[in-house]
Every structure is written in structure tokens, then in C-alpha cells.
Design a protein around this nucleic acid. Sequence first.
RNA 1: UGGGGCGUCGUCAAGUGGCAAGACACAGGACUUUGGAUCCUGGAUCGGAGGUUCGAAUCCUCCCGCCCCAACCA
Length: 578
Amino acid sequence: MSNGKNSSGKAGGGAGKAASAGRDFIRAIIDEHNRTGRYDGRVHTRFPPEPNGYLHIGHAKSICLNFGIAAEYGGLCNLRFDDTNPSKEEVEYVESIKEDVRWLGFDWEDREYYASDYFEQLYGYAVELVKMGKAYVCDLSSDEVREQRGTLTEPGRESPYRNRSIEENLDLFERMRAGEFRTGARTLRAKIDMTSPNINMRDPVTCRIMHSSHHRTGDQWCIYPMYDFAHCCSDSIERITHSICTLEFEDHRPLYDWYLEELGIFHSQQIEFARLNLTYTVLSKRKLLLLVEGGYVSGWDDPLMPTISGLRRRGYTPESIRDFCNRIGVAKNDTRVSIDLLAHCLREDLNKQAPRVMAVLRPLKVVIDNYPDDAIEDMEAVNNPEDPSMGTRMLPFSREIYIERDDFREDPPKKFFRLAPGREVRLKHAYFITCIDVVKDTKTGEVTELRCTYDHETRSGDAPDGRKVKGTLHWVSAKHSITATVRLYDHLFAKENPDDVGKGEDFKDFLNPNALEELKGCRLEPGLARAGSVDRFQFLRHGYFCVDSRDSTEGAPVFNRIVPLRDSWAKIEKKQRS
RNA sequence: UGGGGCGUCGUCAAGUGGCAAGACACAGGACUUUGGAUCCUGGAUCGGAGGUUCGAAUCCUCCCGCCCCAACCA
């Protein structure tokens, strides 16, 4: 281990831009290793998921870090499944993990490893420990072990089996492997120090008996290594230089080092960073599993979920997620990042890329009285004002159109620039129209239709006489538009920190009842009938949307709102109300 | 009360003894055929108290607060 007592500060060795100081403490450590030659300038990381659930955006942070660092330093990053607990792991999860890492844009090439591939080697290491008198077979039950472990403030007591002879240990351990004992009957324990203030060092279990079949090794084994033993050895076997993990493993580092030191094998450096927390959601596989199993969401890929598959189905781009991960930085502070930043990254990405289209989510019919009954005009519309190379398209205009219900107020408040009785507004890419009459349902009083007139001179949205109009509305031609279902998503949880539960509360109590609003009968411009599952659009003045990959069908499209546009009118309105 | 970490703008986060980066959010303004985008402008003295120093967010001391650890989970 390097201890930073050094003179000059030039970061040498390594590579290119990664050598610049002050980016984050992990890169600083690597720079130091490169400077002192600890790993001969080699940088080799790994992303080590346990296949017991789907990856979420917290994992994305780790993936970006591990693959990102490897790339920056001209090194490699392995994908390694930490599959040492067959009772929780499944192939479905390994498949999803591979898909997600790939989708995020990272490539582990042929370096797809499994801790389970090392079981035989790990067994060998365990035997070595036994031979060195550094491990023993213990017959205590888990309850007894717990009882003898001591507490945070009291030391533990030594197991009565702690001083078995090496021969007896060897024999017993071999028989553990052979399946002579039932699940949980015995364990192999590292002989360290029952009085250590670090509880992880109080003779931790190294291998346990579990008669359950493993998703890769089947029934080949009935003993399985514990995380602390398997992980450091796997890192060593793969000659990982920097084993980056989250803060809760900080206390485990002495044990990580102990195994490698006693075994005298390649010694990777474990480095811990703070895991990601996000506002208005939870980022723990256990809690996400509970939401899935309890039917609180439609599955791991529910667009409300912070899982990679959920974000993908919701419409997030891998670029925006990577950008987010780079922006949040890496440190050791226990923090909760605002989900607004993720939304910002998506908007920034899509603002440049997404073609603009017109979609009326809550349609209100408008009849243009002085427009010819059967006329249809093609209006030219820019596809993306941010990028003229994306060209234009034609939109059909006719006498009956739909506008957004929110774009009309019979009694407009201050600063409301949109349509109202007697008001003139611009229809984007079309004409100026003026509202001359409001048709209501005689019973309910609900506005059912607007009668307007248009100014023929304002075609394409400009008045030759130079008169200005404050509002510009999007619209679709009534008879040309297609009908679709649109799902508007809000935060999964209504509370900023759902992990903050008082006594008697459960995180699920804070689920946002309005997280999903489904709108039927939305009217979209005709071209959207051909929208594909990889397309992402900006619905003008609404936000960014994509076709739902699961529920959308040929004649009945379903769109997901990825993220809304910033809405300064909503802010003004809110301020006016208070 | 044991051990391991962490405390810099509302939220992340640089800074490692020489006048506190940046981003998101927020506020104000400009521009605008998206109340979008873009463009200006504004704001923290660094958990607290002492001390060392010409000079401290950066060093020392004490205090306060938060997180993690007592699975044969990872």
C-alpha cells in the first residue's frame, strides 16, 4: 500500500488526461500508484455484480467508474459475476446484467468471469489456510456463533473448535466438500482474533455448507465461499489492480488484505467510494425486489423504476446516464443527488437530437369558421430548430383542429399568453387565429369547442403588418391526426428521501399515488404512426417521449413521457396562487 | 460506551497553508414562430470553539452531528 509521503507532485506513469490532478480521490490514488510503480503502471478494474437482481442507476455509477477509469488509463475492466450464494442468484439476472452493461455502452470483450469458475481454486486456497493453521472447521451453529461473537463493545469468545489439529481440520473440510454434513452443520472459519474491535476479524466464516444447486455449477458443490474470501481471491486471480467498491466494505478491507497476505498471492488494492442515492426513489436491490414482488410496479423494467431496464424503457439514453454519472463525481460523502440532474442530462442530450412533433394530449376542438370547408393545406414545419440539417416535414392543416385544453382560458389570469375569448394567438407553423366564440355543454358547462377565425395573411406564422402575438400553440388537424395513449410519469416516491422511515413506517408508504397518469385519446400528428421503438421525440411544449417498448401495438400506440420540458408558465402560475 | 468513515452554497463537488472552481437548482434580465433552447447577471468564509502562522477550508486540540459494522448476504 502506498502512503503518500512524497515530494514532487507530477503524476507520471499512466496515461494522458487521467494524470491531471484533482479529479477525484480514486484517480489520485491510481496516479500515485503509477508514480511509484506499484502495479508497473498497469490499471485493471472489474465490475462485480451479484446476479440477484436487476442493475439500477447506482450500479451505473460503478460501471462508469470502473470501465471509465480502465479506458482512461489504457487498462482493462472485467465483468465478474459474484455468484457465491446460489440461494439468491439466477440466470435471468446474469442475462439482464449483461444486457444493461452493454446497453450503457461498455464492452468487457472476452473477460466475462464468474466467481463460481474459481470454486476449485478457492477450495485450494482454503486448504492452504487450514494447512497453515490459519483456518479451522467449526461445528457451532449460526446462533451459537452469533452469541459468541461478542458485541460492538464486548470482545467475542473463542470457539471450542478453534484449536483442532490441522489433520482433523483437513479431514473435516474434505468431508464438508464431500457432502457428509447437512446444510449449516459446520463452517470453515479464518483463525484471526476474537477480540478484534473490528467484528469482521472475529474469526469470520470462510466457507459454509449449502446443499442447494447453483445456476452455473449445478450440484457440483455443497460448500460455497463467503464474499470476503471469494472476492479478494477473485480479484487476485484476475490480477485486478484496483478493486473499487462502496463504503460499507471499508470495514472489510482489513479482512480483504488478511486473506491475500496470508495466502501470499497478488494483492489488489481495495478502494471504497460512496454509493449513489437519488431523491424521490430508492436504490437498493432489496427494496426494488420488494416493489416488484409486491406488485407495486409492473416489473423490473417499469418505467418508474430506477433500474437500467426501467430507465431504458422510460426512454432515457445511455449517453445521458453516462453524462450524469460523470457529473455527480466520486467521493466518500454520504449524499443524495437530486434527480433533477438526471432529468437535466436527458434534456440536454435530447434537445440536440430529438425531432420536434406536435401532440395534443388533452384535445379541445377548434373550428375555424372562415376557413374553407374542404380545404387541406400542407404546412412546412422545422424538425429541430437546434439542428437545421434535420430538415422539415409537411403537416396537414384543415378547418377543424385540436389544441391543448390548457391553452385556452375563458377567464385568463395575468400573464396568460394563450387563447381566450377575443384573443389572437399563433398556431405554430400555420396561421394566427382569434377566438370568437366558446361552445359549452349546456348541462355541465364544460367547454366543448371553440369557434375561431384565421387571418389568411399570416400563413406560416408571420403577420405582414408586423403585428405581434404573445402565444404560440401547437395543434393537429382533427381529421388527419392519429389517436394514441400517452403515459405521464412523475417520481416513484412522493417523499424526497423514502429511506427515511420513522417507527411504524415503511418505505412503501411513501410511494407516489400519482406517479403514473395515463391519457387516452391523445391526438398526434400523422407521421407518428410510423414511430419506432428506438425513436425519441420532443412533443412540442410538453417534453420528450418515446414509444413504450412493451405495451405499444401497431394500431394503438403508447407513448411514455421520458421527462417534461421545463415549464416556466407553471412556475408563474404557482407563484400567482400563493 | 468499541471500530471504521464523513462533515465546503438548497443539492452534488473542486480545493492539500496565500485572497472559496464548476454543475444542477433558484432569482433577475435579454432573446425567442416551443412561456423550450440559448445568452447575460446574482448569491457560500468552508459543522462549532480554541490554537499555530504574516496568512488556514486546508496544520494542531477539544467538541458537535451524520453514516456503516454484531448474515453460515453481497
